[in-house]
């Protein structure tokens, strides 16, 4: 008796669509369970994402190579109405001087308040390592940059990242040779800050409009445009005293509990090719593990991308010689 001929079952589109949709939903659920966005998130999927960063390194480098002439073209077009090189030079000089004034003001106020505590070590004595920006975000929903340093260089998730003019973000994913930094302007970013003038504390968050909003400032606090905003150090992620920006507008209505304060960041990522990653505080590192790639950053606002100290060169060398970095981050963990 002959058996009926059996035809192999084919996967139909509908079945496959359902299966793949459920797989995707499972991944989203697991990703959320691991912590979702933020430096505190940890788990298999987040680790896999970090591992994959090594695989796509050639694409990152290709994008960096391609981006250089495009950025140069954009800058040239932007400066076309001015005297080219002069405008760029003056812009950079103005940024540096503005940052310096803010930093000096911060130092002056702190010196007044803490004059009796001069024997304490400088709280802003930070270890940092310079890195090149490889590329910006590959999608519209995350404001990130990819830098060319990773775990091989002592970087870790949660480390603050700054440009010569101020804080720009925090490492959220790190591979062996690259790291992804979530910028302060991302809606999922947040940092505890205070106003330089009156020490009023608040929380600075990014937004979809790429503006910074200073939240939780009650209506009775005197806030005026031009006030400088610096990190407060609360939460332990970002060191205290790093300049972020200055207030550009303040508004409120009678029904509001808090003021609506918009902050213009002093650090503009598009103008820089290098950033500094703060790997730890000198006072907290052990002298046993020296790392030649690290430099010293003081005050968090520096005019050099490779050596960020505003102390004299002699002081800087003395610091490097007397206190070698361990590579252990002083600030890791969750975002604020």
């Amino acid at each position: 008796m002959a058996l009926p001929k059996q035809t192999p079952k084919r996967i139909t589109g509908g079945v496959l669509a359902i299966v793949l949709s459920f797989v995707s939903l499972g991944l989203i659920t697991l990703w959320s369970y691991e912590g979702g966005t933020g430096a505190e998130a940890n788990g298999f999927l987040h680790s896999a994402r970090s591992a994959l960063a090594t695989v796509i390194l050639p694409f990152d480098r290709a994008s960096s190579f391609l981006g250089q002439p495009v950025d140069a073209l954009g800058a040239a077009v932007g400066d076309a109405t001015a005297s080219d090189a002069t405008l760029s030079e003056l812009q950079a000089q103005n940024d540096a001087l503005s940052s310096m004034v803010m930093r000096l003001e911060e130092y002056r106020l702190e010196n007044e308040r803490l004059a009796e505590l001069l024997e304490l070590s400088d709280a802003y004595n930070l270890e940092s390592t310079a890195a090149h920006i490889l590329k910006k975000s590959i999608d519209s929903w995350n404001q990130t940059i990819t830098i060319d340093k990773g775990t091989e260089d002592g970087l870790a998730v949660g480390m603050p990242v700054m440009s010569p003019n101020g804080l720009i973000g925090q490492i959220e994913s790190v591979g062996r040779f690259t790291a992804q930094v979530r910028l302060l302007t991302d809606p999922n970013s947040g940092v505890a800050v205070f106003l330089q003038a009156n020490r009023s504390e608040g929380v600075l968050t990014g937004s979809i409009e790429r503006l910074l909003y200073l939240n939780y400032l009650s209506l009775d606090i005197d806030v005026v445009p031009g006030d400088v905003v610096v990190t407060s150090g609360a939460g332990g992620v970002y060191p205290k005293g790093i300049v972020i920006g200055e207030i550009t507008s303040v508004s409120s209505s009678p029904s509001d509990v808090y003021q609506t304060v918009v902050v213009k960041p002093t650090a503009r990522v598009k103008y820089y090719e290098e950033v500094l990653v703060l790997t730890g505080r000198q006072s907290e590192v052990t002298p046993s593990a020296a790392a030649s790639t690290t430099t010293t950053a003081t005050g968090g606002t520096d005019t050099s991308t490779t050596s960020a100290s505003d102390d004299s060169a002699a002081d800087e060398n003395a610091n490097e010689n007397s206190s070698a970095p361990s590579g252990t981050p002083a600030d890791t963990g969750g975002g604020e």
């Binding site: 797989v23 939903l25 499972g26 697991l30 990703w31 999927l45 995350n142 990130t144 979530r182």
Partner: peptide, 10 residues
């Protein structure tokens, strides 16, 4: 990217 893993796949 740093977005929700599986979102674009879905």
């Amino acid at each position: 990217s740093l977005g929700p893993l599986g979102a674009l796949a879905l």
